[in-house]
Design a protein around this nucleic acid. Sequence first.
DNA 1: ACTGTATTGCGAACCAGTCGCAACTAGACC
DNA 2: GGTCTAGTTGCGACTGGTTCGCAATACAGT
Lengths: 150, 150
Amino acid sequence: MLKRHDLLNEVEAQGIRLTTQRRVLIETIQEATSHLDAASLLDLARKRDPNIDRATVYRTIELLKRLGMIDELDLMHLNGEKHYYEVKTQKDHLHLACFHCGAIEEFASPTFERLKREIGAKNDFDIQVMRLEVGGVCRSCAAKRKKHLQ
Amino acid sequence: MLKRHDLLNEVEAQGIRLTTQRRVLIETIQEATSHLDAASLLDLARKRDPNIDRATVYRTIELLKRLGMIDELDLMHLNGEKHYYEVKTQKDHLHLACFHCGAIEEFASPTFERLKREIGAKNDFDIQVMRLEVGGVCRSCAAKRKKHLQ
DNA sequence: ACTGTATTGCGAACCAGTCGCAACTAGACC
DNA sequence: GGTCTAGTTGCGACTGGTTCGCAATACAGT
């Protein structure tokens, strides 16, 4: 598992006002075991504090994104146009989305790191976010397909 | 400039019904000099044939995407949640989006190609689409910023 | 505890994209 | 060239995700 940032501490360290809602939302994102969209984040957060509003969810996401603490993903829009969020990890990684079963795999590699350095250097570009998403057919779906064709 | 596919020929070769609307839309995408979203594509296409409908634009985009002839981009959502489209090029390339001036740079590199092969091989994943977007501050905006701080 | 400012909840609004359905048309066959 | 029909289109209504304006509220500094 890739090491994640500790949101609550970092937000506090930035001198940002810590409201109950923000605390709850941040804890929810931090402890999530899968990629959350805004609606699921709202649902989960409401289990801890039922009075959280949709708008606050979006505003908090916006805040954390601006602070560079979470990343926004599309996951190839496998399920509509919504976005998914994850706590930024120490190392960048990419997402593989299977068009058949919807599984998401994560993948970090030195080549990806190297590409990042190269992009920054060659274009003289100050990289803040980097999002690599790959869509296709995963190992097990390819196997199933092959079987069916025989 | 990266070499683009010839959409009209390829669509025809696939035995897909070529309606006036599709022809116009395909020509418009093909000749576009910048990344088009659905609304701009509609506007441009209407200059050639005023009777094209929004729904047809979306349906044609869907078709070309399914055929793997165009790629869908977010361009870091610099201007809202809409999507942008571009004709697939021979070589994959990535997009650098500047959060300050909104400029989009394109970048192709052997390391990117290599990463693609590596992803396919290491995960045993059949790659159909690959989207790498980078957000940050471009060379000239960084220079301007530095100047202001002095 | 008091105060000022940032944040919240609410509901309405927004925007990109989708859908159902009747009318139309490309292109295959004669 | 005319006929036929499956595939495509235009229309308008709708959806789902996200944003906004504003009055009420709550954090953090004194």
